[in-house]
Design a binder for these strands. Structure first.
Lengths: 213, 213
DNA sequence: CATGATTTTTAGATGCGCCTAAAAATGGTG
DNA sequence: CACCATTTTTAGGCGCATCTAAAAATCATG
């Protein structure tokens, strides 16, 4: 598929891991466990990405995307999230079923396809997990004030805005408990959730309108 | 992508070439030119397909699909044609633009995806080129009485039912001359067509209803 | 600040799909 | 029916992405 599914996968891993931590430098071991390969394989691939001008490699310290590499990674994220949106909104898949399929679809190489798909879906701003969809030029729509549920200090009512990387099983379990994008959670409900979910659920506080009047 | 895009491509070539001629035995040279590789590469791949039980290989004589191989090939054809239908009917591509994209999409491995796509498209029976779409069980809807335009002996009015493997440029040119599925051609129009097209256009005779009344 | 534990890279091998060149089989023709 | 042209397969290599094992660099700790 096009230039190489593997290169694209390494590029995406570099992007995803760089975003999820303070420094954009990512270790080869991190990438290896994320991609399910061994560290030496990552080293080799990172060196290829460096030759292509898509990443920098500081031996023994890690790798980081170049601006070019970042653009490419964003276009992959864009494709992935547009396909997920298609699978859920149009084909009726559950949000826990679409990741692996989108993983394959995102490697299809056709600019026209992505742009037509985007238009067909009505230029969606977020995917079925609530994550923002990068635009064709690599910019995002602002994400609003969301925070990880684990960091909600005084437990207050909040609305689920997005779910970060969860296994299919986790996503199914959430669905089963009635958690979806837009769900409102009360402090009591939050305390009853499995601890692991607190790091995955992104929420924003809702105003308690004292609805018992 | 799944088991191997290359194996799938060889399987499809074996199917397509076997169908297009009297004998289902296909030479490695034929496959090689169809796939754009050299004959020794095909020999090697055919031997792999034989080990998988997808094809028989009679050395120095050719290869042929087994029933299992044929089923797999039909499921690829099914996916290809469903995606082409999606691209044209839903995304608004022209029929000459979709082959290469569908070629990539058909290798995406997900039974659920194909079946949902089929339902979403309304279980179409033919693709945008007029070719029948195999059903999930590998059967076809009957194709009706179509014949190659080149064999239309007394030139009479006919309706375009399908277009066989044409280059994108050919398909564009046909569109430009107003030829689409369902177009009705008069003997005068047929005589004006480029000779090469006569082998690609599949038509059925139409009743001249003597509409000048 | 030196030494041991850990991380990372290099070295060398494997499988896959492709290639070219050479050998083997087939098939047509005198 | 033997020979030559053609087709097909075998032999041997190459590039890519991966692996394991060994070497090198970094880091953490006494």
């Amino acid at each position: 598929m096009s230039k190489s599914t593997q290169r694209e996968d390494h590029l995406k891993a570099l992007y995803a891991l760089g975003e999820s931590q303070s420094s954009s430098w990512v270790s080869t071991t991190q990438m290896a466990s994320h991609l399910g390969v061994k560290p030496p394989s990552v080293t080799a691939m990172v060196q290829v990405l460096a030759e292509l001008g898509w990443a920098e490699h500081r031996p023994y310290h890690g790798a980081r995307l170049t601006p070019t590499g970042r653009k490419l990674a964003l276009s992959l994220v864009r494709k992935h999230r547009l396909w997920e949106t298609f699978l859920v909104d149009r084909l009726g898949f559950g949000w826990e079923e679409v990741h692996d399929i989108a993983e394959q679809l995102e490697h299809v190489d056709s600019v026209a396809l992505v742009e037509r798909l985007d238009a067909y879906l009505g230029h969606p701003q977020t995917d079925p997990h609530g994550d923002p969809i990068p635009k064709a030029d690599g910019t995002f729509h602002p994400e609003g004030e969301v925070l990880v549920l684990a960091e909600l200090d005084p437990l207050v009512c909040c609305e689920v805005k997005a779910v970060r990387e969860g296994s299919d099983a986790t996503l199914s379990a959430m669905s089963a408990k009635g958690i979806a994008l837009g769900s409102v959670l009360t402090p009591a409900q939050i305390e009853a959730l499995p601890a692991a979910w607190l790091d995955q659920l992104m929420v924003c506080k809702t105003v308690d309108d004292g609805s018992i009047d």
